[in-house]
């Protein structure tokens, strides 16, 4: 039960993007709309979880000297496999994410968790860690993209990635009050800064509470 409690707490406390500042490159680049964020987030979640499982299961037979090259082989293989599957079954995601899809391989969250967690813990814990980190990454991307899409486009919409049909669309801001700059990189940095500050404030508050106790 304790593992499950940690699972939820870690979503905010050990958030890879806003807490550990990992995987920021893709976070800034692709969060222009919710479709991209979900597509990227779920792709990373899958690669991260499977890579954690595999690396954890081979942790006892992997020689220490070459562990990093072995991790890279595992991660690169998974990324390429996911990329091919997305190209085949969800081409709209592939078109939207472009070069960032193969670049999952250098997403530091994945190698970071392999080295810091999966190589030292059992398969069950590593699976949870992968799901936890992947979910936190997806939620972070979703938060960024919701803010940016609403401010820049004035609408919030989600398409089905497999047949590109619209799932929902809400018009929020009328055309003349939209802030196009949030589509640009500078908008990504601004959004990121505010969210990171917010998460840091929450973390500080809970840390102080723990001290008082």
């Amino acid at each position: 039960m304790k593992t499950l409690g940690n699972f939820l707490l870690n979503l905010l406390k050990e958030n890879p993007v806003f807490g550990l500042y990992l995987g920021i490159c893709s976070t800034l680049a692709i969060t222009t709309n919710l479709d991209n964020a979900i597509g990227m987030g779920v792709s990373v979640l899958i690669v991260l979880t499977i890579s954690n499982i595999m690396i954890s299961s081979i942790r006892k037979i992997t020689p220490d000297e070459i562990r990093i090259p072995v991790y890279i082989i595992v991660i690169a293989t998974l990324t390429k496999a996911i990329e091919l599957l997305i190209k085949a079954f969800a081409p709209t995601i592939d078109a939207a994410l472009g070069v960032y899809l193969p670049l999952i391989v250098v997403n530091c969250i994945i190698l970071g968790r392999a080295e810091a967690y999966a190589s030292k813990n059992n398969i069950w814990k590593s699976t949870l860690d992968g799901l936890n980190m992947g979910l936190a990454y997806t939620l972070s991307l979703a938060a960024m993209s919701i803010i940016r899409q609403i401010l820049a486009d004035g609408v919030l919409s989600l398409n089905n990635p497999f047949n590109s049909t619209l799932i929902f669309e809400i018009n929020i801001i009328p055309a003349e009050y939209r802030i196009a700059i949030f589509k640009e990189p500078i908008g990504a940095f601004l959004t990121f800064a505010f969210l990171a500050a917010g998460v840091a404030a929450i973390q500080n508050a809970t840390a102080k509470k723990a001290e008082v106790k």
């Binding site: 992997t62 020689p63 000297e65 070459i66 090259p69 072995v70 082989i73 595992v74």
Partner: peptide
């Protein structure tokens, strides 16, 4: 080590 990496 080489064999392990090659196998992987």
């Amino acid at each position: 080590l080489t064999l392990f990496l090659a196998l992987a």
